[in-house]
């Protein structure tokens, strides 16, 4: 039983990094707009394909490709907010409308990806394939890199949200939208920036995703659902909770896949989610300020 511990922990590190990058953006959107973006998984997939095109087809070095893709995806995220979310969010039944619209958007994105990149598997070549040994298990350096990226970016986002003026306006809109407007904060701008940041983070998550597994147009739903689970697990509106939740879910997924069987791992994760929601609807990690 214990001989599997190192591979499970390494796998946890990789999965948790990917999930935290993906979920941080959803948490940001949730805390300001109180909606779930069902198209977030599709954003990850589009980001992954963009990185693939820029690095494999256009031949750019991977870091530059990721940077360009991130900028492009931030633009796309802002576009989604402007075109799809903004007209619906202010309606009396806006919460439901935004969810249905983003669900449709996920379908649209899947079709569009299929049209642009075709149904074949694509994989992004990692920056390095070098490994090092921990207790006889070969660990990729890219796993460490993914961990550093996730903790660095999500940690950086926490700093930005807590320390900068932009962060203050996000928190203000999240806490009291009307009061924030009285103070001259434009909620529209906050929503726009939050969607852009969320898509940008998902694109970095896509780098981890696309180098460790293959991309197909329909693959967005898996990561999206895991992001939901992480969000609930960590407490929907807290970035710290997101980070902790992401690695916790990563561990549960890695350990159930290793010890019980691959097909049972999603069932275990979802059943756990139901239990958490029943016992602590506010999430396991206590909400900070």
């Amino acid at each position: 039983m214990l001989d599997g511990l190192v591979p499970v922990l390494v796998s946890t590190l990789l999965l948790g990094s990917m999930y935290s990058l993906l979920t941080a953006g959803m948490s940001l959107i949730w805390s300001t707009l109180q909606v779930f973006n069902y198209a977030h998984g599709a954003m990850l997939i589009i980001g992954g394909y963009l990185i693939w095109t820029l690095s494999s087809t256009a031949g750019l070095p991977l870091p530059l490709a990721v940077l360009l893709a991130t900028v492009a995806m931030a633009g796309l995220g802002a576009l989604v907010e402007l075109v799809v979310v903004r007209p619906l969010a202010s309606r009396p039944d806006g919460t439901l409308m935004v969810m249905v619209a983003t669900l449709a958007l996920a379908g649209l994105a899947e079709g569009a990806v299929q049209l642009i990149w075709g149904p074949e598997n694509k994989q992004v070549q990692p920056v390095t394939t070098a490994t090092f040994d921990i207790a006889g298990v070969a660990v990729r350096w890219t796993t460490v890199l993914a961990f550093l990226l996730a903790v660095g970016l999500v940690g950086g986002l926490m700093l930005v949200v807590n320390r900068t003026e932009w962060g203050a306006s996000i928190r203000a809109v999240a806490q009291n939208r009307d009061m924030a407007m009285l103070l001259g904060i434009k909620p529209g701008r906050v929503y726009l920036s939050v969607f852009a940041a969320s898509a940008a983070l998902a694109t970095v998550g896509a780098l981890v995703f696309a180098t460790t597994t293959t991309l197909t147009p329909a693959k967005g739903s898996g990561p999206l659902l895991i992001a939901f689970v992480v969000l609930v697990f960590g407490g929907t509106a807290s970035l710290m909770g997101t980070l902790v939740g992401a690695y916790a879910i990563g561990f549960i997924e890695a350990s159930t896949s290793y010890w019980i069987g691959l097909q049972w791992s999603p069932v275990a994760v979802f059943v756990l989610l139901v239990v958490v929601m029943l016992v602590r609807p506010e999430g396991l990690v206590r909400r900070g300020s």
Partner: peptide
């Protein structure tokens, strides 16, 4: 049953998860 204690958007989440559990149970 899991919906009892929840309101609004959390219900959307947990009922969506229910569909996914069904999907994965069928495969399992």
């Amino acid at each position: 049953l899991p919906v009892i204690r929840m309101r609004g958007i959390y219900i959307a989440l947990i009922t969506f998860v229910f569909v996914q559990i069904s999907y994965h149970l069928v495969l399992a």
